[in-house]
Design a protein around this nucleic acid. Sequence first.
DNA 1: GCAAAAGTGTTGGAGATACACCCATGA
DNA 2: TCATGGGTGTATCTCCAACACTTTTGC
Lengths: 225, 225
Amino acid sequence: MTARPKRDASPPPAVTAEVTLLTIDDARLQLLLVRRAASPLAGVWSLPGGRVGARECLEDCALRVLEEETGVTGVYLEQLYTFGKPGRHGRERVISVAYTALAPRGDIALRVGPDVADTRWFDIDALPKLAFDHDEIVAVAVSRLRAKLDYSTIALQFMDESFTLSELQGVYQSILGQPLDKRNFRKQILALESIEPTSRYARNGSHRPARLFRAKHPRRVEIIK
Amino acid sequence: MTARPKRDASPPPAVTAEVTLLTIDDARLQLLLVRRAASPLAGVWSLPGGRVGARECLEDCALRVLEEETGVTGVYLEQLYTFGKPGRHGRERVISVAYTALAPRGDIALRVGPDVADTRWFDIDALPKLAFDHDEIVAVAVSRLRAKLDYSTIALQFMDESFTLSELQGVYQSILGQPLDKRNFRKQILALESIEPTSRYARNGSHRPARLFRAKHPRRVEIIK
DNA sequence: GCAAAAGTGTTGGAGATACACCCATGA
DNA sequence: TCATGGGTGTATCTCCAACACTTTTGC
């Protein structure tokens, strides 16, 4: 039906990786954004992202641009979706392979990269206007995260090396936006056998110390059910 | 850490869409392949696929190359995953956005496209050697399909406009590779309220005719649970 | 009337939900 | 001793799995 483009007839589109880095701080889901220093859309907030290098795989690209622009390393990363509508990126044809990254909030020291005007966390419910279709990318990332809570151990990617069950429950509640029953939550989580108690306790305030747990396989996300 | 490539320093990779078209015939999951006519890998079987046009969105590209190479139109399509490791496609850097397509077997008249040596269905357990990393793409597609059976109405995409409950059960069994209890299957499917009875019956042989059902929203895949 | 697939309910068990009180600590 | 969050068990309900016989047709 359609005329078939000749091989190499048109210049190939640019390919970028974009990173939606989420964390939880103060019981709120937060997103890391960079303010663009360069044209197009200088001054506008956007996801960290950049072009794929000639000998670089997509995942490495995502990790590299994240570090270059924000200084963040060592996060959990998974591919989200590829966005490629013509016109989504202004005049230039850009195909963006979007990644979701997750990290515990404690870890993260920010740096403002060379081509970036600013780097900041935003509450997911209070995002500024975003460049291009990045608001759509974020929406997909958040809805996928919410879905994955139910059938995987992905929430553990938000936790420090050791953590209390109440902290973990707080993470679930922040993402789902609803309170959970403490006893049932503990029963379910422990039944997965994905975390194990350590011999240490968190002494946080004027109350009984909480036992610290750790993930059995910290970098692995297990599919359950 | 890594040296940041200058903007436009290296030629951008080629971007293609690749289509894993699955159907069910004779109670077996089948995959549509094309035999490559042109270099590289002439004579080798591969997924239908081709370069993304300059003003074409990724999904349109997938549908276009599928039609050009195989004559197939009107299928259900969803994005699967993007494959981009350097070296996956020989010397040239190619990033492939893979799509899963599903269709009822009845529908499909095949054509051998202009750049194609042959077009054929293969039983999913008896695939020939495939070009590049297409075996990996197929494996991801099948495992995602299997997972999606459990929490969506995706199986309806394999059905003709009207179908019997036994036919639908056969589709589930073919994909899962295990028999299902007839009464429980019917209860569960009907409880979803995604299909409805018609007033017609299928008279297939020397036995009681089966009531025909149809999908309430034939092109829509609903997420359940 | 016989072969072949269609159609139809009930029961028991497992897993999820709802729910309230005692414990250990710091101030 | 009081305020604060940590920690624990049971009863009920809902959902899922197992299971066998009758119906309708074509030959």
